[in-house]
Simulated assay, not measured.
Amino acid sequence: MSDPLSADQFIAALRAEGVTVVEVGDWRNHNRNHKGAWGPVNGVVIHHTASSGTRDTVDYCYDGDEELPGPLCHGVIDKEGTVHLVGNGRTNHAGKGDAAVLDAVIQESALPRATVQNTDGNVRFYGFECINEGDGKDPWPAAQLEAIERVSAAVCRAHGWGSGSVIGHKEWSIEKIDPVGFGMDGMRKRIAKRLGSGPSPCNEPFPGSEFFRAAPRSAVIAAMGRRLVEEGCSAYLDGPGPRWTDADRQSYAKWQRKLGFSGSDADGWPGKASWDALRVPTS
């Protein structure tokens, strides 16, 4: 059981896991918190949503309709594996489900079959809608399945959960069939394998805040600077080089602002979430 991630923490976690993210409208403040609680949170629910295309699906999941106002999830995963963020907070995605299933998610134990609908899942779960007709014929491209794996692992990693915290909507509710076309047991195995390592075993682990404040001279600093340049966050007049300088701090502050951080969270001193999202190659 955890407090929900802030918008900054959420998007940083996704990017740290290598997820391609598109921010839609005012997603950071778009929620149903005025209708009920959001959190403590316990897991992730995967859905499919029949659609007539990415744009229409994203718009619908953002706005909803008169009977079911949006947002209808936290993110929409398209066929190319891009995740469109449409909500932050309580969203209309899980609905009522079985308290025994929630118990199993919390314990990360074997899931019982849902038989009743006595618990509000919108309080407890992050939700991702995946674009698919749900007819068993519409294909699930590899990029889309990988994105499901990555977003699930990202949220689990941020909260310290295992793959048992990820379920399909059909495992939560007796009224739902989604997702159709792939098995959740297999997806949980993929997520578990990903969680067995860091966001990328080829990336430099976060060296700690004090490392930078000591003005180090290190190949890690040069590698970081090159990544900042690649991300369009350069304040360098020359370089970057191996010695930590004010130009590094200014460049890193640009990166933090690009991730959506502000104020003291965008002061140019690296933190773990922003560092993981930068994906600095091992030096």
Rank of each mutant, 00 (worst) to 15 (best):
V155W: 01
G121L: 08
K35Y: 00
K258N: 11
V180K: 14
E17L: 01
G95N: 12
A100I: 02
W269I: 07
A153T: 01
D103M: 05
F182I: 14
M184H: 10
G168T: 03
G43P: 04
A94K: 11
T20V: 08
D3T: 07
D135C: 06
Q250M: 15
W269D: 03
G160K: 07
A222D: 08
S52A: 12
L145N: 06
R279G: 06
R217L: 13
A154P: 04
A7Y: 03
R257D: 14
R226I: 04
R249C: 02
D238F: 12
Q250T: 15
K137W: 11
C202K: 15
A94M: 09
K254W: 02
G181C: 11
G225L: 01
Q250W: 13
P69G: 06
S6T: 11
M224N: 05
N42M: 10
L85P: 02
F125A: 03
N29D: 02
G97N: 14
A142G: 06
R217F: 13
C156D: 10
Q250K: 15
G43I: 03
S200Q: 13
R257H: 13
V76R: 06
A158K: 05
I167W: 04
S51F: 09
D248L: 09
D26M: 00
A192F: 00
E67Y: 10
E210M: 09
D138T: 04
E17S: 01
P141T: 09
S283P: 14
E204W: 03
G181R: 12
C156S: 13
R15Q: 14
L228I: 10
D59N: 14
V166Q: 02
A222W: 05
R32I: 00
Q256F: 04
G136R: 08
G43S: 06
E133S: 15
W275S: 05
A277V: 07
V83E: 04
N122S: 04
S264D: 12
S200G: 14
